[in-house]
Simulated scan of single mutants.
Amino acid sequence: MAFHLRAATEQDLPFARALTHEAMNRYYVQNQLIWSNAGFDTAWAGRENWLICRDDHTLGFISLSRDGGALYIRELHLLQAYRGQGAGTWVLEQIALKAQAQALGLLRLTVFKTNPARRLYQRMGFSIVGEEDGFWRMERVCRVR
């Protein structure tokens, strides 16, 4: 019953798009933003995407990008039925290890201010380093190996 990551393929795009829209729609409405399937698809194509799995079940996905000093979590979503079971904590630790292995000193993300996931990020060592409109910018220092 261990969690694992599987590289996402183009066939996983509809799942990821639908899950993101379902998870984020209320935050988009609260912040008067407009969801765009085409925008999501374009972003997906330019990112490193992984499915979060346990046994043969897909629990969610994570989408990453990077620059010279940081690994960015662009999307992290779990199906409702699998939230609160440790997968989010596990995947954040895996991604921190990935940042370290790639000699990137920071792990960064942006979260809606009203999203309760912020508490998970803070428990996992992320600090609020800025804000913009309805978002918190957060980062975690990763010791480079």
Rank of each mutant, 00 (worst) to 15 (best):
D12V: 08
L13A: 02
L13G: 06
F15I: 09
F15Q: 10
A16F: 08
A18R: 03
A18G: 02
H21E: 14
E22Y: 04
E22T: 08
A23C: 15
Y28P: 09
V29T: 14
N31T: 11
Q32L: 11
I34W: 08
I34K: 13
W35Q: 06
A38S: 12
G39V: 14
G39D: 15
G39C: 11
F40R: 06
A45P: 01
A45I: 08
A45C: 10
R47W: 02
N49Q: 02
I52T: 05
C53Y: 08
D56L: 08
H57D: 15
L59A: 05
G60L: 05
G60C: 10
G60V: 04
F61D: 00
I62D: 00
S63W: 03
S63A: 12
S65Y: 03
A70M: 05
A70Q: 07
L71F: 04
L71Q: 09
Y72P: 05
I73S: 00
R74T: 04
L78A: 07
L78E: 05
G84V: 09
G86Q: 13
A87I: 14
T89V: 14
T89S: 13
L92M: 14
L92I: 15
E93F: 04
Q94D: 07
I95L: 10
I95M: 09
K98T: 10
Q100D: 11
L104D: 09
G105A: 15
G105S: 13
L106S: 11
L106H: 07
L107M: 08
L107Y: 00
V111Q: 04
